[in-house]
Design a protein around this nucleic acid. Structure first.
Lengths: 129, 129
DNA sequence: CTCCATGGTATCCTCTTTGATACTGAGTAT
DNA sequence: ATACTCAGTATCAAAGAGGATACCATGGAG
């Protein structure tokens, strides 16, 4: 649109200093499980160990590259382990660590909340028109 | 480096059928709270309503544009309400809806998990199994 | 009069994430 | 010999999230 050039470029920009609160625990937790497929992957792994192709089938429309990446990140975050069996064809199993299993109430809570509030928009509290 | 050489790649096929819809609840819930700042914003709002600049100061280094965007998305998802008071200077208050308050256990669980497992790296993955 | 605070918009831009597609390698089935 | 399997890699491209910066309207303070 129009580029307003009213002059007066000497406007002093204010610089506000922000205090960094310690509630970043929520943020750092979300960084671990916040990937597009990570929640679903972890949820499936709650039932027990799975191999790569099982996870792939379970999750649905995810590419190999993306699944590999998400799994490696989850591994790097210490929520699951990756075990390679040197056989042919390759076999790689993924299973939750204790850190990952500690997410159980969160994942089931997330699922319950999602079922109740985002998948069935029927009841809730009528907050949606 | 786990180099397990059991030599027996037996297929432990414990999953026979996957139901796509029920797992997506986790995903759709994560879509609501999965933004970079959304978890922190919601967590702060658990304590009660806040105005724009309060949230901004609380979450730290977030730009106005980003905060506005995240808040509008949260509003669109029905987890918070936005109330504009026609005064000068402007006053806008944000507060959780019932849907948003239903996230309380998830957010506190996320925070507890984050505190225990991601902020204090006390060798949570050192399982010996 | 000018400056300031609040709660935004409007552009532009970068960085990350995700996807599509093709390819690999060793043993096994045909 | 060839195809097939699994669990990846390697590139390339598209999309989008988030950030930097500038601008706006209003009324009160000085």
């Amino acid at each position: 649109m129009e580029d307003r050039n009213t002059g007066a470029p000497g406007r002093a920009q204010r610089f506000t200093s922000y205090s960094h609160s310690k509630n970043c625990a929520v943020e750092s937790a979300l960084e671990v499980i916040g990937g597009k497929w990570k929640g679903v992957i972890l949820f499936h792994l709650l039932s027990g160990e799975m191999r790569f192709s099982e996870i792939r089938r379970a999750v649905g429309a995810i590419t190999q590259r993306t699944l590999t990446k998400q799994l490696r990140e989850l591994e790097a975050d210490g929520v699951l382990t990756r075990t390679v069996y040197p056989v042919v064809p390759p076999k790689v199993e993924y299973r939750l660590t204790e850190k990952g299993e500690a997410l159980t109430p969160i994942l089931t809570g997330l699922r319950a909340w999602g079922l109740r509030y985002t998948l069935s928009e029927t009841d809730a509290t009528g907050e949606e028109a």
